[in-house]
Design a protein around this nucleic acid. Structure first.
Length: 893
RNA sequence: GCCGGAGUGGCGGAAUUGGUAGACGCGGCGGAUUCAAAAUCCGCUUUUCGCAAGGAAGUGUGGGUUCGAGUCCCUCCUCCGGUACCA
């Protein structure tokens, strides 16, 4: 198949030239911009710039990829193309655009490969990064590669460790509602012993060690965060996950639950994404209620969102792991209870989910006193009550809770109606809001009021209190892996302390065997020289989870090579917009997949809020606007996967049609946020369009000549581009006709509007309309063509840059720094307009009227239409609706 | 179950605040060019009735509001994503 145009030669040439002039370097305050840099020329800047000299910032960020062995798939460049188009558009609009790229390169696959083959994860990772970078660069994105980062680079993870130490050395002060240095924590006087005082502090750090039931994945040989467990299986690999008590590093994200929730109000994220985060944080309001245990000196506290149903609590349930189970169980129930505890502990999360609704449990032989009516109610244990939510214990109100009802029916426990359902509905099993009954002082109150009244009663009688609860758990932050950031932590005499800041980074030891040790220790424990310090301290052998590096990478881009700080403050202030009144606070636009809705995006917000509290960043939220690109499906409409054999490799598309066509197609497929199927035929469509653009401007004869020359002297293809001549119809100094101007300015207007709303597909179709138009022009004024190329350039930068070079001469500024064209509304004004005429809302005719027609004239013209007449004949006109410039509707009867 | 989002030609998708449904592209059909093909260019292409002019129907279903509904309101159905014993 003959090429539409020599895209391969043009694309490599343009990429080389952009690289040579570091065209897309973004400039920080206090940097010296070379006078011949296109940015300096465009903005008239010379020498060292201060913050005030720089144009407004625009920070546009992609989710950096994990460089996997299989390379880029077509989903990656979808988001990258969208951001690149906007980066180029914003540059044309005069912004100082920061558009960086890097590698989230710690992770499990490289480590698993190492265990299998012995190849060091570093080697694997470097090879993968090289391949990813080659692929990404082949698409001509305008990244500032001088800011490239790699989370596995010691110069990078040094600062990941440093931020971890900030968390370690901080606590959450509930009074100020902020993270503060641990020194501000006042330790009560009654805690005297130095040991105890240290423990008191350690228990309140934002990074702390806790013995807790964790998600243990035997296949992966590591623990996982709650967020990494999907339906009882590991998110990576889909292996079963068990609950197991282990000592682990935790981060106190729960302290920030409310802030993480409230922060969502200030940012421009899609409603569905915000909703996902809200659900994950899971705030619910209710009350804590204290139940005295009968005949024992013990008290069970429960959390409930329905204190109004307290009179209907007919039994209680503790989770099998609850602290009080042992103490409260009667002798005769001892055996049954411990058998049940064993049974529950053996169940994996997966089995728990699968067994789902089949309730099990055991009576523990003790009773509690319902504080509101003094009733003795039995206490049970059952695994439908989770140890990890609320207090790990519930009051059961079977009449108004589906789970309690099922349990009560199975074990013959009493069911007492305390809420009257609205008319027609059965009150037993009714879980909504109704009216209280059988509830003494709450009777006849609607649920909302009853709830409040009961809380007041509880507080008055010191039987409970108002309480807010969250689903969010603290973040389990340690992994038993090799290929991750080592903790900057040392252990001595069973107590942890931090490595000094000046000793960072803590490097990974050299190992050749990456498996866990035979006694189940993490792989780092194999490096005994590394673990055992001279002073007798031991290094922490866990590593950080993959999310650690991505929690703050957007800040490192701002000042990627700073040796003294994780990021210079003035630079941070500039790019995060705090210094400028009109700038968006934070990253202006962040584009990436939905798969990170609750993992990366929640963790990064959490770290950012801690850094903000410690005055290390200047904005409370990291990502101002966030857009999720939709999934690209295979040609068969199924999700792309190797096993289905429907994976499209960008390399093949670029080789056949070029990067510009690839970019254009990815944007033309449909709205960015929708999922849509790939269709290689569609690539050919946009490829033909680019060929038409080429032929609008380039002379076909000369192209033939070019083809002949390059066929002979293959290696000189780039120089041979010089033989190309302009299409004879392209003429300079030619005054465009009003029709031509109208066509061009319609296109300017549409493309500009669509870019502002990220409607790339319709912007492209507007350009197609223009090109179809211009193809039929006898003569093509050079200025019109140049302007059109400005519109095209964010989408198809190589072709636009090359044609711009031909039209404008290579000595002029590159198109990437040309100002964006502005449409002239005066050129779009029409003298007359065709409007539809409807009769009773049905289209019957169209009439052409002068634009400034008065209502009477429009009505008269509409009624004159012969087609219209046949429909109103013999009927009376009741009403005429005239929408100026839009339509006429004649209502007849 | 609950919470989001989406249902428009053969296909991907357009349609400012309710105002000409189907832009643009793919595919298909026909033509020009060619010895022929590829490529390119031009025309047609929602369905249906009709030789035609023209008519009728039509945006998942059923109803409603309106001069007028793909767009607003209610009902139901299907698909996609998230989540699920969260008290």
């Amino acid at each position: 198949m003959r090429k539409q145009y020599p895209f391969d030669v043009i694309e490599s040439k343009r990429q080389r030239l952009w690289d040579e002039q570091t065209a897309f370097r973004a400039w920080n305050p206090q940097e010296t911009i070379p006078a011949d840099h296109p940015f300096a020329k465009r903005h008239g800047l010379t020498g060292k710039t201060s913050l005030a000299d720089l144009p407004p910032k625009y920070y546009i960020l992609d989710m950096f990829p994990y460089p996997s062995g299989s390379g880029l798939h077509v989903g990656h460049p979808e988001g990258y193309t969208a951001t690149d188009i906007l980066a180029r558009y914003k540059r044309a609009r005069g912004f100082n655009v920061l558009h960086p790229m890097g590698w989230d390169a710690f992770g499990l696959p490289a480590e698993q490969y190492a265990i299998k083959t012995g190849q060091h994860p570093r080697t694997t990772t470097e090879a993968n990064v090289t391949n990813f970078k080659r692929q990404i660069k082949s698409l001509g994105f305008s990244y500032d590669w001088s800011r490239e980062i790699d989370t596995t680079d010691p110069d990078y993870f040094r600062w990941t460790q440093w931020i971890f130490l900030k968390l370690y050395h901080s606590w959450y002060n509930p009074e100020t509602g902020r993270a503060e240095p641990i020194e501000t924590l006042s330790i009560p006087n009654e805690v005297r012993e130095e040991e105890e005082r240290a423990s008191y502090r350690d228990e309140r750090r934002l990074a702390y060690v806790a013995e807790a039931p964790v998600n243990w994945c035997p296949e992966l040989g590591t623990v996982l965060a709650n967020e990494e467990v999907v339906e009882g299986k590991s998110e990576i690999g889909g292996f079963p996950v068990l609950r197991k008590p282990m000592r682990q590093w935790m981060l106190r994200i729960t302290a920030f639950a409310d802030k993480l929730l409230q922060g969502l109000e200030e940012i421009q994220w899609s409603e569905s994404l915000k909703e996902m985060q809200r659900n994950w944080i899971g705030r619910s309001e209710g009350a804590e209620v204290h139940f005295q245990v009968a005949d024992k000196d013990a008290c069970i506290t429960v959390f409930t969102t329905r204190p109004d149903t307290l009179f209907g609590a007919t039994y209680m349930v503790l989770s099998p792991e609850h602290d009080l189970v042992l103490a409260l169980t009667s002798e005769e129930q001892q055996k049954a209870v411990s058998a049940y505890q064993d049974y529950a502990a053996r169940k994996s999360d997966l089995e728990r989910t699968e067994l789902g609704k089949n309730k099990t449990g055991v009576f523990i032989g003790a009773h509690a006193i319902n504080p509101v009516n003094g009733e003795r109610i039995p206490i049970w244990i059952a695994d439908y009550v989770l140890a990890t939510y609320g207090t790990g214990a519930i009051m059961a109100v079977p009449a108004h809770d589906a789970r309690d009802l099922e349990f009560a029916e199975k074990f013959n426990l009493p069911v007492l109606k305390v809420v009257q359902a609205p008319q027609g509905q059965d009150s037993i099993g009714f879980v909504g809001d109704g009216v209280s009954v059988n509830s003494d002082f709450l009777n006849e109150l609607p649920t909302a009021e009853a709830r409040q009244k009961m809380i007041c009663w509880l507080e008055e009688h010191q039987k409970g209190s108002r309480q807010v609860n969250f689903k969010l758990r603290d973040w389990l932050f340690s992994r038993q892996r090799f290929w991750g950031e080592p903790f900057p932590i040392l252990w001595k005499k069973g107590r942890h302390h931090s490595v000094g800041e000046h000793e960072l980074p803590v490097l990974l030891p050299e190992l050749s065997d990456f498996k866990p040790t035979s006694d189940g220790e993490p792989p780092l424990a194999r490096a005994s020289d590394w673990v055992n310090m001279k002073d007798g301290s031991l290094r922490e052998t866990n590593t950080m989870p993959q999310w650690a590096g991505s929690c703050w990478y957007y800040l490192r881009y701002l000042d990627a090579h700073n040796k003294e700080k994780f990021c210079d403050r003035e630079t941070e202030t500039y790019w995060m917009g705090s210094g400028q009144p009109d700038a968006n606070p934070g990253v202006d636009l962040y584009v990436g997949g939905t798969e990170h809705a609750v993992l990366h995006l929640l963790y990064a917000r959490f770290w950012h809020k801690v850094l903000f509290d410690l005055d290390l960043t200047s904005t409370p939220e990291p990502f101002f606007k966030l857009v999720n690109q939709g999934l690209i499906m295979g040609e068969d409409g199924q999700k792309m996967s190797k096993s289905r054999g429907n994976v499209v490799n960008p390399d093949d598309i670029v080789a056949h049609y070029g990067a510009d066509a690839f970019r254009l197609y990815e944007m033309f497929m449909g709205p960015l946020e929708m999922s849509k199927p790939w269709n290689t035929k569609g690539v050919e469509g946009v490829y033909r369009f680019l060929g038409r653009v080429w032929r609008l401007i380039v002379d076909e004869e000369s192209e033939l000549e070019y083809a002949q020359k390059t066929a002979v002297e293959n290696e000189n293809a780039e120089q041979q581009l010089a033989v190309l001549r302009l299409n004879g119809s392209v003429q300079s100094g030619l005054k465009p006709t009003s029709e031509q101007l109208k066509s061009l300015h319609t296109c300017i207007q549409k493309v500009t509007e669509d870019l502002q709303h990220m409607r790339f597909n319709t912007a492209i179709s507007a350009m197609m309309v223009f090109v179809n138009d211009a193809t039929n022009w006898e003569t093509r004024p050079k200025e019109c063509m140049k302007t059109f190329l400005l519109l095209l350039h964010p989408f198809a930068p190589h072709l636009a840059e090359e044609l711009h070079g031909m039209l404008a001469g290579e000595t002029e500024s590159i198109i990437a720094y040309e100002p964006w064209p502005i449409h002239d509304p005066k050129l779009l004004v029409e003298d007359s307009i065709e409007i539809p005429v409807q009769v009773n809302g049905k289209l019957r005719d169209r009439v052409t009227i002068p634009c400034d027609s008065k209502r009477e004239l429009i009505e008269a013209l509409a009624l004159e239409s012969t087609k219209v007449k046949t429909f109103i004949d013999g009927k009376s006109v009741k009403k005429m609706i005239v929408v100026p410039g839009k339509l006429v509707n004649i209502v007849v009867k």
